[in-house]
Design a binder for these strands. Structure first.
Length: 479
RNA sequence: GGCGCGUUCGUCUAGCGGCUAGGACACAGCCCUCUCAAGGCUGCGACACGGGUUCGAUUCCCGUACGCGCUACCA
């Protein structure tokens, strides 16, 4: 039975890179019929953010990523929040100190900074100088009795090579002499990531650690910890995912655009589309298919097929994919999605009316928000008129023709797109002009802009009386 | 600086010794058309570089370049 975990730090919003890590864990768990676990890694008290966990939970639910064990669903290896497990970490840190695999360090952060600076100045890699590594037990006792603040550090064996087989990268090696005597337990009594992570992965019987590439260099420390605890035989497999990149190939970050899942949600991206898109950033089932349902992704997922190189998070393809997903939604689903957006803009309309607007806009939107961003004229008469379209389509001739058309519209008993079209085309023919000479000015008069859905369908939806009023207004206002 | 990882069209990718290097997004043109889209067709466009290994390298090995990550009492 495979057991994997997604172990985020609740520090605010959910980064799309985190979503991808969560997604790959989820896909792997479901593909292998294993267990997907959510564990909150909140051991840094200085980075605590109010409501971050709730937001994380909501975001995961939105994305359709489910967990079998976690803070909400419980499980036999809980609690699943690290701040509630501190006794466990302390116990394990003590055990390591007793067995000589770790030691107390009383160095102040000032001393640490100074040492690092000195080493750097000397052209050495900035590392801890292992100052407290060989303190005698008497010295330790004296300092402890005096209540000196201290941390627990791992006693990293010198002169060894740690090699492990990463599922996506193959063999990776590190020299232990390049590894710092890592702090395991901080002076505030909380564990660092390394300790808490290894202890929890072991206690929760994790079989595969699927995480971001930023952890690759720390993996030998984790392996050393497994060894120190005597857990070599329970070592999970490691799979390090390449990072998501900005268009300039730097690590995907704020400032160069949106990076939080919440941002995309707010901008009208569908969870299925975001998930589909992100799944294919670094993974491909060796197929030319682009659109995958979540079940297809689960069926196709394979850690061996995860790419080693980082992928640029390119917005254009996401937009295309989102549009594809929007068009696959049923009218009722779209209504439910767009309704709140329309209300936020104070667009008053019946469900029936909104549905018709959605139907006309469907082929023209890339996000849910586009439905309302580009359809204001279905709900409110234009107050401004697009200057480009006015310059091109509006003149004395157009005004004269629209005056004629207006009269015919008023006389029209049946207001449907085909009856409207008939009026317009018949009139154009009678004057020996192209229908476009009427259509464009009409569009401008009624919508205020030069683009949009087919004119006749649009006029039908907006309704006769409103159309008449708008034409009258335009005739009066526009020169 | 040190250590580690990576590198196929602009972007996401297929490829796992022999292919006219395939697909998608984007872009350009054409068709459709009342505009904008959608759709259809066509086009543009890549194996980072240098050495090996081999009858033959995008593919295997070694360098170089470039990019990224780590180098905290943050995760």
């Amino acid at each position: 039975m495979t057991r994997v975990r997604f172990a985020p730090s609740p520090t605010g919003f959910v980064h799309v890179g985190s979503l991808r890590t969560a997604l790959y864990n989820y896909l792997f768990a479901r593909h292998t019929g294993g267990v997907n676990i959510l564990r909150i890694e909140d051991t840094d008290q200085t980075r605590y953010v109010e409501g971050a966990v709730e937001n994380l939970l909501r975001t995961m639910e939105w994305a359709g990523i489910t967990f079998d064990e976690g803070p909400m669903q419980g499980g036999e290896y809980g609690p699943y929040v690290q701040s509630e497990r501190t006794d466990l970490y302390r116990k394990h840190a003590d055990e390591l100190v007793k067995s000589g695999k770790a030691y107390y360090c009383f160095c102040s952060s000032e001393r640490l900074d100074r040492v690092r600076k000195e080493m750097q100045a000397a052209g050495q890699p900035p590392m801890y100088d292992r100052h407290c590594r060989n303190l005698s037990s008497d010295e330790v006792k004296t300092k402890m009795d005096a209540g000196e603040p201290h941390v627990v550090r791992l006693r990293v064996p010198l002169g060894e090579t740690i090699t492990f087989n990463d599922v996506v990268r193959g063999d990776v090696s590190f020299e232990t002499k390049t590894i710092d005597d890592q702090v395991l337990l901080k002076s505030d009594g909380f564990p660092t990531y390394h300790l808490a992570n290894v202890v929890d992965d072991r206690m929760m019987k994790i079989t595969h650690v699927i995480r971001g590439e930023e952890w690759l260099s720390s993996t030998p420390k984790h392996i050393l910890l497994y060894r120190a605890f005597g857990w070599e035989n329970a070592m999970p497999k490691f799979a390090h995912l390449a990072l998501l990149l900005n268009p300039d190939r730097s690590k995907l970050s704020k400032r160069q655009g949106d990076v939080s899942v919440e941002d995309f949600r707010e901008q009208g991206y569908l969870p299925d589309a975001l998930v589909n898109f992100i799944a294919l950033l670094g993974f491909n089932p060796s197929d030319t298919q682009e659109i995958y349902t979540i079940d297809e992704l689960i069926a196709a997922f394979d850690l061996e097929k995860v790419n080693k190189g980082g992928a640029v998070f390119g917005r254009e393809k996401l937009d295309w994919m989102n549009a594809e997903y929007i068009r696959k939604k049923s009218p009722d689903e779209l209504l439910a999605l767009v309704r709140p957006l329309a209300e936020k803009r104070d667009y008053r309309a019946s469900d029936e009316y909104l549905k018709r607007v959605i139907g006309l806009m469907l082929e023209r939107v890339r996000t849910l928000n586009d439905f309302v961003d580009f359809s204001s004229y279905f709900f409110k008469a234009p107050v401004e008129f697009d200057e480009k379209s006015r310059a091109k389509n509006w003149n004395a001739d157009a005004k004269a023709r629209l005056t004629d058309i207006l009269a015919e519209f008023k006389a029209l008993s049946e207001w449907t797109h085909s009856s409207i079209e008939q009026v317009v085309r018949t009139y154009a023919e009678s004057k020996s002009i192209s229908a476009g000479k009427l259509i464009h000015p009409l569009r401008l008069a009624v919508s205020g802009v030069g683009m949009g859905p087919g004119l006749f369908e649009m006029l039908e939806v907006i309704g006769k009386s409103e159309v008449v009023e708008r034409i009258e207004y335009a005739l009066e206002k526009l020169n």
